[in-house]
């Protein structure tokens, strides 16, 4: 069974009189361990798709099965739990808490999953070590470089061993060299069996993935494997 199974997924927004079809009848299957890039120009619906995949939003119609569970009809609390356990977010602007140090930032998801203090500390340190920041745990985000901040964010995304990692333009705020480093990190994660989504509009970034899904006008325009 697929890890992710979308069936006729639609999302409509009501803007005054007008109805905007952000996503129209999208069907998609993603297997565990895939490394997928989602591409598309702005307004294409790729953000909407990402929000739905990340359980931040629910579809207007259609079903979304994640790990065999229908998450499209869950309530707010259940969605929060799914996000906590199944999904790791990585954002373009890193989205770390500015007043907390790296360790506290990585611990945050574990606080909400109810882990004990000692265990939390141990797991968070492991995650930071895995992204190569073992010597930066007490630094606050403004004491870290952009690449380091994104690594902290990735550690935070990994710390709950989620089913999928959702990265939204993860290299958008980084110079190309640091961007490459981050993309290499994603490749490593993919090789270790993580399911990774990268949303981007840069062809170069997308080419790191093994499957590229292009969205246009709320529809899947193309879905092809990348030959390396």
């Amino acid at each position: 069974m697929s890890l992710i199974c979308l069936k006729n997924l639609s999302r409509r927004y009501q803007m005054g009189e007008e109805t905007i079809h952000a996503l129209r009848d999208v069907s998609l299957e993603i297997e565990r361990g895939e490394y997928v890039a989602i591409m598309g120009p702005s307004g294409s619906g790729k953000s909407t798709l990402m929000n739905l995949l990340g359980c931040l939003d629910t579809p207007t119609s259609g079903t979304y099965e994640l790990n065999g569970t229908n998450v499209s009809e869950m309530d707010d609390n259940e969605l929060a739990e799914v996000r906590n356990r199944e999904i790791g977010f990585v954002f373009q602007t890193f989205n770390l808490l500015p007043r907390s140090n790296a360790l506290r930032n990585v611990e945050l998801p574990l606080i909400y999953s109810g882990m004990t203090f000692d265990e939390r500390r141990r797991v968070a340190l492991e995650a930071l070590t895995a992204v190569g920041l073992a010597d930066r745990v007490t630094h606050k985000p403004n004491e870290l470089s952009g690449g380091q901040r994104q690594r902290v964010a990735i550690a935070r995304a990994l710390v709950n061993t989620p089913s999928i990692i959702l990265a939204d333009e993860p290299t958008g705020n980084l110079d190309s060299k640091t961007g490459d480093e981050i993309m290499t990190l994603f490749e490593d994660l993919s090789r270790k069996g993580n399911t990774v989504f990268v949303v981007t509009h840069e062809e170069e970034v997308a080419l790191h993935a093994r499957r590229i899904i292009r969205i246009r006008d709320g529809l899947i325009a193309s879905d092809e494997a990348v030959k390396h």
Binding site: L56, D76, A80, R83, N84, Y112, S113, N160
Partner: peptide, 12 residues
């Protein structure tokens, strides 16, 4: 927003 995204419930 960040807290909600990484799993905080409304109650939290």
């Amino acid at each position: 927003g960040i807290r909600r995204a990484i799993g905080a419930k409304k109650r939290n």
